[in-house]
Every structure is written in C-alpha cells, then in structure tokens.
Design a protein around this nucleic acid. Structure first.
Length: 549
RNA sequence: UGGGGAGUCGCCAAGUGGUAAGGCAACGGACUUUGACUCCGUUAUUCGUAGGUUCGAUCCCUACCUCCCCAGCCA
C-alpha cells in the first residue's frame, strides 16, 4: 500500500504542530498495557500507533507495564505481551514498570498532603460512592476532608507500613466534590491492599490508582504524547491536575483516540478470558482467538496486521471495522510470499482408466505464478488421484464448471480429464470416479483445440501425504438474539477438523510455514497440533469466491 | 434534565471557506491452467437536521436531533 493512500490523523497533526511551535523537541510515546491478559488485535492498533508515530518523527517508545493492581497482574502476561510486541516488529526504548516508580509516587503523595491537596479518608467504599453524588447532583465533602497535614502524614505513613486493613482507609485528592466532572470529586489516589505484587512482592501495602499513577509514569519517563482511548477523555483534567499538583518538571499531554472494534470479533479481555476459562477455546492462543498470539498461531503475519492498523486510521468517532478488511490484508501479504500448492481437504478418489498402471509422471509446476523468484517444483501424476468432493456433482446446478458425468475439466498443471463412470456404495454415495485423460491436453503444451471452464486441483494417491486441516469460522454467530449471553453467541461450528492430503513436497513442513492451497485459501502449519507424523494446517483465510454451491 | 466526546458512501477515513481523497465491501465487464489474482468501470450534486453569515460553507454562527463515555478502594 502506498503511503499516499494512508490518511493522516489528528494525532499526527498535533505532533507536527508541537514540533513546529517548539512545545516539544522530541517525540516520546509509550504503550502501557496492564499485564492482566493477552494482547488482542485492538491493542495492536495502539501498539502500532505509539511506535509508528514516534518513529515517524525520529522519536522513541517505551513498553511500560501498568502494574498498579497486584490482584490482577501476573508475569505470564508480561512475558506474553513482550513477545507479542516484538513479534509485531517493534523495539521499545525502555522496558518500564509502573511499580518501578512506587517510591517516587509515594513521595509525591506526601508532597500532595503537605500542600493540603490530599487527605486520608476513613469512609467505606460504599460511603465514598454515596458521597460522590450522581451525574446530576453534586457530591458532599467527606467528614475526613479537613484533617490536619500532620494527621494525614501520620495516617498515610501508617497505611504504607501496613497498619490498617484493606478497605479501611484511602488517600484522596482534595479537589472539588461539586465538580460536574465526577472524576474530580476527590478521587481516590491510593488504596490499601495486602497483596503480593508480581514484582515488588509484599514491600507495599498501598497501591496507587491509575488516575494518579499514570500521569506520574508519563512525566517520569519524559513522555511527550500520552495516547489513550476515548473513555479516558474526562480523566484528562485529573491527569493534568496530578502533573501540576505534583510539580512534575516534564509536562506530558494526553490525547484520546477511538478503540478498535471489528465485526464478529470479541474485543474485551474479560470476554476472551471467559472463553479460555470455560473451555470454549483451548487457550489464549487458540487460532480462533483475536489475540495476537491466536492470530500468530492461526497464520496471520505481523505485516498484515500492521498494514491493517495503518489502513483503518486513527480518529475519535466510535467505529466498527468490517472483519473483511483484516482478511484482505493477510491475503494481500501472503499473495506473493506463500507457495501455491495443492491440498485435498475432503478426498474423492478418481481412477484415470486410460493411464498406464504403475506409471507416474512428474509434472512441472511453478510455486507461485505471480512470483517467479519462488521457483518451480515437480508434482506427481498417476492413475489414481484424489480430487475434492465438492468438485463433482451428479446433478449440478447451473453454471457449475466442475466435474459431472460426461463433462471435461482441466487438472491444474496436468491434463484434461472426462468423467466416464460414477461408482457408489450401498448407501448411494459417490465413492469413486472413473475418468479418462487426453494426452494432447498436457499443461504447457499449448493445446488449444478445446476449452474447458473448470480447473480442478488434485493430489496423486501414491504420493499423497496425509494431513489435517483446521477450518475456522467466526467465533461468534453472524446473528445473535438480543440480550443473549456471550456463550449463547458462540458459533458451534467455529472449528472443523478435516483429514485429507497434501502434495509430497509438503512432507516436511515447519510450524508457521505458509501455503496457498489452490482454490481453498491460505494455510499455516500449526505449532502445537502438528506432530512429526502429521502436519496440521490452519486456515488463515479462504480465497475470495464469487461462486457458492 | 450534570460533564465529556462523536456524527462525511454499506464499513473505515481524509478534507475544515473555493466548490467531496483513499481503502474495504458490493456490482458490472475484460482476462484467467486458482469461480483466486490482475485490469477497467459503477457506487455521496452531497458531508446528522433546520436556519443564518458569505460571491461561495462539509468547513464559520445559532438552534435542534442521534449515538458513545463517566457515579471501581479496575485500567
């Protein structure tokens, strides 16, 4: 995709202006995931934005784990997230953890208390909620709002020392209980949690809240543009308040953009975790999952995801991108990279009755007709071959270009064959076809006396390599009843396991090897399901088709 | 009926005073040893609605409508 085809966006405009008027000298961004789950395609949008926009202006990007809530965060996630970001092709400047700044954050909280801008509040969570008022009514001051600086300092120190039970006290900012912006009604800055943190262990018994911690993290790292999603828009005044009140030298600014939604795609860590926990899928990296690890295992390439992210743009309006857009970009990326080979997913045996018994001919085939650099290979053709069950019909619908009794089709890279006889079992099912071939029609011979409308793919029985195919559909039903639960929306046919054959050239494939199987789609070798004896090919995306049976 | 945002083609998304980019999807047609790819063509006299300012408005002003977000000691 040409650069000129990519739309600009408001964030780029802001950065250009900031650079032009000297507000900032260097662009510094950060991608700040909470390590409480795996990254998904929605996160990829944010990853790409942060890394690419900084790179565009010669700036840098930190990968920062926002680990301020020890009850939800785990090392498993921090490792997986790093792997995913690297896989997308990005290199961070610094690897940071919010927890690295806990001491500084504590000191700044003390400063806030000393300035009379924060106080320890003994109200219960329920009382705080009630005191906060509602969307249309102002809140009321906490009875603890006017404690002395000395008392606050003492209480806060004791909170830190673990003297109080979880939930018994919090540190609150003293701002304005009547603010029309609820975030400014004396927000909680610190809560008590006697929980083991994945990095700091039991060093701390108090943990900072996002609204307090995030601006400090940004300022401490010298972030120039702090990019986040729309729901944080009305937190911005608090973000700025913290920077100002804590007297931070660096003045990062927060900008918000719309998060990504894709049709028929679950884009919430909570829901994805539910699918894993309830066994709807096998794991976070199940090829049906929209997680980056799932997409990777499915066979998506980092390039395709990056191009997709570029194409959808960055804006402030809520939107839902058609999933076909993502599919388009993998097809586009794999088009010239993948070897184009033949696989039979639902085998139907064909005997070429006029082909000499025991004779095999090795045919020439280009690996990718659109990319000569991928070279040629030999494929075997013999008396017995497999074709696709769908490629034969006794009573075909109109415009059916495939095999039917008496009809002639081309076999890719081989010969024309004509169906002479149909063999059925007792149940009346077609189990074998008897065909004849015409030696004059060999591919590459320039034969043009007759035309056929259909070209089928095939695999020689003698050289066929057994393989498994995993065909995927959306994890979600196309249409789901209103008010249905997540589990009720799950597509029961999201994965179909098929046994068939591939060409002999695919005898020794490696995990993540990618192929285009003619007339089917793009497939990728699954790293977990494949065994030494039998490769498992995941359907990355099918080929487009203007014909439906 | 508090505050914060958003409304440009079926879906994304530029443009922001000079007369509507691009991508995906769709639909025609050409080509075709993948019903794929590629190529050509079609698809907003119109930018949520109604007024106003202007020679001229999607862009400025006014009013209205619709949708999203906020009352976690989550992020």
């Amino acid at each position: 995709m040409d650069e000129q085809h990519v739309s600009s966006n408001f964030i780029r405009t802001i950065i250009q202006d900031d650079l032009a008027n000297g507000r900032v000298q260097d662009v510094y961004t950060r991608f700040p995931p909470e390590p409480n789950g795996y990254l998904h395609i929605g996160h990829a949008k944010a990853v790409c934005l942060n890394f690419e926009i900084a790179d565009e202006f010669g700036g840098k990007t930190n990968l920062r784990f926002d680990d301020t809530n020890p009850t939800k965060e785990e090392d498993e996630y921090v490792n997986a997230i790093q792997e995913d970001v690297r896989w997308l092709g990005f290199s961070w400047d610094k690897l940071c953890f919010a927890s690295d700044y806990f001491a500084t954050m504590y000191d700044k909280a003390v400063l806030l208390i000393q300035k009379g801008l924060a106080y320890v509040c003994d109200l219960t969570a329920e009382q705080i909620r009630q005191g906060r008022g509602s969307l249309t009514t102002p809140g009321v001051d906490s009875p603890y709002r006017n404690r002395t600086v000395e008392e606050n300092l003492d209480l806060f120190a004791r909170m830190k020392n673990g003297e109080f039970a979880d939930g018994s006290k919090v540190l609150r900012a003293k701002i304005d209980m009547a603010s029309p912006n609820i975030n400014l009604r004396d927000p909680v800055l610190y809560r008590i949690a006697h929980a083991a943190h994945h990095r700091t262990g039991t060093t701390w018994s108090i943990y900072p809240m996002y609204d307090y911690a995030h601006p400090l993290e940004d300022a401490l790292e010298g972030i120039s543009h702090s990019l986040c999603t729309l729901e944080f828009e009305d937190h911005r005044p608090l973000y700025d308040w913290v920077i100002e009140a804590c007297e931070m030298v660096s003045r990062p600014r927060q900008y918000e953009f719309a998060r990504l939604n894709i049709t028929h795609t679950i884009m919430s860590k909570r829901n994805l975790k539910q699918l894993v926990d309830e066994g709807v899928v096998e794991s976070w990296d199940d090829p049906r999952m929209p997680t980056l690890s799932g997409l990777r295992r499915r066979g998506y390439t980092p390039e395709s995801i990056r191009q997709f992210a570029k194409a959808i743009g960055i804006a402030k309006s809520n939107s839902t991108v058609d999933h076909q857009m993502l599919e388009y970009f993998v097809r586009e990326d794999l088009k010239l990279k993948a070897l184009r080979t033949m696989a039979i997913v639902r085998p139907l045996k064909v005997v070429i009755t006029n082909w000499e018994e025991g004779s095999i001919e090795w045919l020439d085939a280009e690996n990718n007709a659109e990319n000569e650099a991928l070279g040629m290979r030999k494929i075997p053709f013999g008396r017995e071959i497999y074709i696709e069950q769908d490629d034969f019909m006794e009573n075909p619908p109109p415009k059916y270009f495939r095999l039917t009794k008496g009809a002639e089709v081309r076999l890719k890279h081989a010969y024309f064959i004509r169906c002479e006889d149909v063999i059925k079992n007792e149940a009346g099912e077609v189990v074998e076809l008897h065909c004849t071939y015409d030696p004059l029609t060999k591919s590459g011979s320039g034969f043009s006396a007759r035309k056929v409308k259909g070209t089928l793919h095939f695999v020689s029985c003698e050289y066929a390599v057994p393989a498994e195919f995993r065909m995927f559909e959306s994890l979600l039903l196309e249409e789901s009843p209103a008010g249905s639960t997540l589990l009720e929306q799950v597509n029961p046919h999201s994965m179909e396991v098929l046994s068939g054959y591939v060409e002999p050239g695919l005898q020794h494939v490696q995990p993540y090897d990618k192929f285009q199987f003619f007339r089917h789609g793009y497939f990728s070798v699954d790293p977990k399901w494949s065994t030494n004896d039998r490769a498992v090919f995941n359907l990355v995306v099918s080929l487009k088709s203007s014909f439906q049976l």
